[in-house]
Write a protein that binds this DNA or RNA. Structure first.
Length: 598
DNA sequence: CTAGGGTTAG
């Protein structure tokens, strides 16, 4: 039996003293010593709040064995309190296996018959909702929603905001929206959760509408609903995704207005927004405006990424090397640097960075290095990478390998990649087109026909290509060959004009990127009205001469459009900036910033 | 007093 505390006053003092030690526990040994003192002093049973705070810290501490230790302790308690359970729920929700906190919530990790399970409160559900958000489990979120209503805690603003956030992170935006609409009381965090959910989900445009409502009349909102720096970051994220520079500039202005422009996280979001809107210069300006000691890992990552996607690989490497010693590069840093080397054709630098990585490479790192080696023609080295990876290659990696094999006309590797892709269940048109083109380049027409037959029988998924461009703050969207735009006749006439003028410089349509199952003329038609060409043509007729044309495309730019954009930049004296799926291309005077290597 | 919303990624 542990000795009972001598008197209540003395016990309270002792508890106070222990309490003050809590924030200073770091090593696992500290936690064990603290546990021992809780036991010998009797506080483990006599002072539940102290015990729960100890469990909370233990369950969140970064040591591998800390969380199992906390769970063991929880299970050994004769009468666990709600807060003991909550500490463990919180730790599990933040762990690499968040779903385990749902098991605990359901009582599955507690001893079976006795002791009595503690009752749940709003906090228990809050942690569980964090877990369902992290594993994108919309159904579990719904179940927790039901439990929360039954518990009678549905009026809790914080909990409902967490619920809203969880629905949004699980991709269920309608439910998130419904929670928002039904909340009688909201505050700025509620708005921010919805805004961020829309911005990072499928509705960045709606996010901006919401932001403008908040920002436009923000003095009329209740003080607790006034937009803050988190609102700004979420709105910037929407602008970045859309490539909406005018909106982004407006949000930046609003940040100045509410005095949030010096906030590091706002600056980080600004760097990303300016970069993705095609303004590397403004992105770098923001980065340099952050005081050296205020810069975070994300500041560096976002800026290195900006330099990389804009094709400035050497500068990305330089910034990487200049990172202060107290900031450790993480997997995102390496991905950005490797991407920079890839886009700039710095093969040996990329290989060197990859080999010197201080974190274990993941699938995306392998994807980048395979792309880098593959483009450079070092196909066997790229294939070796895949073979010696510590995990099996995924679809994107084999698509990368297939692209490299096509580029260098390697039939064996192309067939291998295509086989793997079929095994992994990929069924997109691009894969077939690449394989077919490898065969076509070797005049293996029977194989070309076989690929085409497979396509027919497999009901191939075609990813529609689209592009858009912002004119006076309004987005104009184009799909391949569409005539939806009000001014489509002018646009097509302009394209005819373009083709005839650049033909004088020797332009011929490069049709090898179109599948060989249609006639030559049709191929030319399919190419001629690619969405990025429509967007550029519209840019030409709706902006004054000499103004930069900015286009955003959802897929990678095709070889023919790349040639055409270069020629337009020369003939029409325009700078054209195209953001494609992977990077930026800046066309000026007949040249592209990617130096035709992408 | 222990709870909610945020930026970087092939």
């Amino acid at each position: 039996m542990p000795p009972a505390p001598p008197s209540t006053a003395a016990a309270a003092a002792a508890a106070q003293q222990l309490e003050s030690l809590l924030p200073r526990l770091t090593t696992l040994s500290h936690y064990k010593q603290f546990h021992a003192r809780l036991l010998t002093s009797g506080h483990l049973c006599s002072h539940p709040p102290l015990r729960a705070r100890f469990l909370d810290r233990l369950a969140l501490s970064p040591h591998d064995t800390a969380l199992p230790y906390a769970l063991l302790l929880l299970r050994s308690l004769p009468a666990p309190a709600t807060n003991d359970l909550n500490a463990a729920l919180r730790g599990l929700a933040a762990s690499p296996q968040p779903a385990r906190s749902l098991l605990l919530l359901a009582g599955r990790l507690l001893p079976a018959p006795a002791p009595p399970r503690p009752r749940l409160d709003a906090l228990s559900l809050s942690f569980a909702l964090k877990a369902t958000a992290r594993c994108s489990d919309a159904l579990a979120t719904l179940q927790l929603h039901a439990i929360l209503v039954r518990l009678g805690v549905a009026a809790d603003v914080r909990l409902m905001t967490t619920l809203l956030d969880s629905y949004a992170k699980c991709g269920d935006l309608p439910s998130a929206r419904k929670v928002f609409d039904e909340m009688p009381v909201r505050d700025v965090a509620t708005w921010n959760a919805l805004l961020a959910g829309l911005a990072q989900g499928t509705e960045p445009n709606l996010a901006l509408v919401l932001f403008h409502r908040l920002a436009g009349s923000f003095r009329e909102f209740l003080p607790r609903e006034e937009p803050n720096e988190v609102t700004i970051v979420a709105a910037l994220s929407a602008c970045a995704q859309l490539g909406a520079l005018q909106d982004g500039l407006g949000v930046h202005e609003f940040a100045r207005k509410i005095g949030a422009e010096d906030n590091v996280r706002v600056c980080n979001a600004l760097i990303d927004m300016y970069s993705k809107c095609g303004s590397l210069g403004r992105a770098l300006e923001v980065f340099h405006s952050i005081k050296l000691e205020d810069r975070t890992l994300v500041s560096y990552n976002a800026t290195i990424q900006a330099l990389s996607t804009h094709g400035h690989g050497a500068d990305a490497l330089k910034l990487f090397d200049e990172m202060p010693a107290w900031i450790e590069p993480d997997e995102v840093t390496y991905l950005a640097v490797l991407g920079g080397c890839n886009h700039a054709g710095l093969v040996d630098d990329g290989r060197r960075v990859f080999d010197s990585m201080r974190v274990p490479p993941n699938m995306k790192h392998y994807g980048t290095i395979v792309d880098l080696l593959g483009r450079a023609g070092r196909l066997d080295e790229a294939h070796d990478m895949i073979v010696h990876m510590p995990f099996p290659a995924d679809i994107v990696l084999w698509q990368t390998m297939l692209g490299a094999a096509k580029m260098h006309g390697n039939v064996e590797l192309a067939e291998l990649a295509a086989t793997k892709l079929a095994e992994l269940g990929s069924n997109v048109d691009g894969d077939y087109v690449l394989l077919s083109n490898v065969y076509a380049s070797k005049a293996r027409w029977a194989d070309v026909g076989r690929v085409r037959d497979t396509m027919r029988s497999n009901d191939v998924r075609k990813v529609p290509g689209f592009s858009y461009t912002e004119i006076d703050g309004v987005m104009h969207k184009f799909i391949n060959g569409d005539k939806e735009h009000l001014r489509w006749r002018e646009i097509y006439r302009t394209l005819d004009d373009i083709v005839s003028r650049i033909s004088e410089l020797g332009y011929e349509p490069e049709t090898s990127n179109v599948l060989h199952d249609i006639g030559e003329e049709e191929k030319q038609y399919a190419l001629c009205y690619h969405s990025e060409k429509l967007a550029i043509a519209f840019g030409l007729i709706s902006t004054p001469p000499g103004e930069t044309i900015r286009v955003i495309k959802n897929l990678r730019i095709c070889g023919d459009c790349h040639v055409v954009a270069k020629l337009i930049s020369k003939v029409y004296g325009r700078v054209i900036i195209i953001r494609d799926r992977a990077r930026f291309h800046r066309f000026e005077d007949g040249q592209c910033s990617c130096r035709d290597y992408w």
